[in-house]
Amino acid sequence: MTFRLKSVAFALALTSLLPLAAQAQQQLVPAQSEVLFVSRQMGVPVEGKFKTFSAQVAFDPAKLATSKIAFTVDTGSADISREANSELVKPLWFNVAAFPKATFQSSAIKRIDANKFEVAGKLSIKGVSSDVVVPVTLAQSGATTTATGAFPIKRLSFRIGEKEWADTSTVADEVQVKFKLALTGVGKL
């Protein structure tokens, strides 16, 4: 009797997971993807990139309510220049020893038009979380869907560049985050 109850419970648990399994996960194509950031240092734009990042995407254009996007960036992979890179890992900037990852977790996806979406979610950097809305444009070519977009963040809200680096006349508070993510397995828009 106990075995039979356990079998029924197991079957019910599997059945409840079927909707998740039916919504295929897309795969990130790292070689065709990039995450960039642009800040202004003494009024001059300075572009950098993150070399290491990952995404877990379960996106169905026909089922936005159940679609999910999770994104992780290794903060220690920030790359501007040799000199800047050695500073960015330190406690005043990304504090990589204590906060090795920055994350984004979607909470809602809204279609704006045929290939434009707004992805709302929680961005967490250096132990600070904030709600953000990320505009995303999708383009499909063969089996690859490319998601592109850009959004601003206020670095001081995330404690990036503390103490003497909090002076916004040296490094501006606003940082533009830009991305291009190539994905396989996305259904037709």
Results as ranks from 00 to 15, higher is better:
G161H: 04
L36C: 01
T52N: 14
F117Y: 15
F53M: 12
D113H: 09
K163P: 00
V96L: 01
L12S: 12
L123I: 12
R111P: 08
S16A: 14
F10E: 05
E118G: 00
I69P: 09
G142N: 08
F59C: 03
S7L: 14
I160F: 00
S141P: 05
S67M: 14
P100T: 09
L5D: 11
A84T: 11
D167Y: 02
K116L: 08
V46N: 10
D60S: 15
V38Q: 08
T137P: 09
F53T: 04
N95T: 02
P19G: 02
E34L: 11
V136W: 01
R159Q: 09
S106F: 05
A114E: 10
A97W: 05
F158L: 07
S81Q: 13
P45S: 13
V44Y: 10
V134S: 06
P30E: 12
E174A: 09
F53L: 10
S33D: 15
A166E: 06
I80E: 04
V44S: 12
Q32I: 10
F179L: 02
A11W: 07
L181I: 14
A108R: 13
T144H: 04
E164D: 14
A182F: 05
A31N: 09
T75H: 05
A84K: 04
S16I: 08
Q176R: 14
Q32R: 13
D131A: 14
T103W: 02
K116N: 15
A143C: 03
S106W: 06
L92S: 12
E87F: 03
K126Y: 07
L17H: 01
R40E: 12
L12K: 03
V132H: 05
L64W: 04
P100L: 12
E34Q: 15
E118S: 09
V133K: 11
D167K: 09
F94L: 10
P45F: 11
T137L: 08
V38Y: 02
L28I: 03
N115E: 07
Q27I: 07
V136D: 04
L138M: 07
T15N: 03
K122N: 13
D79W: 01
G187M: 09
A70G: 09
K163W: 06
V44W: 06
T52K: 13
V73E: 07
V177W: 00
K68Q: 14
L18R: 06
F10W: 13
K116F: 07
Q140A: 13
F151S: 04
T15A: 15
K180V: 11
T15W: 13
A147D: 08
L183N: 08
A78Q: 10
K122T: 13
V38M: 05
K90P: 04
Q56Y: 07
V8Q: 00
V89C: 02
A9T: 09
F179A: 01
K178S: 14
K154E: 08
N115K: 05
S77F: 07
Q26I: 07
L92Q: 12
V96S: 00
S7Y: 11
V134T: 11
L14E: 00
S77C: 11
T75I: 13
Q32V: 06
A182K: 00
T66R: 00
E164Q: 15
V133D: 07
T144W: 05
L123W: 01
L5W: 11
A108S: 15
A98Y: 08
K154S: 13
V35H: 06
S169C: 04
A31F: 03
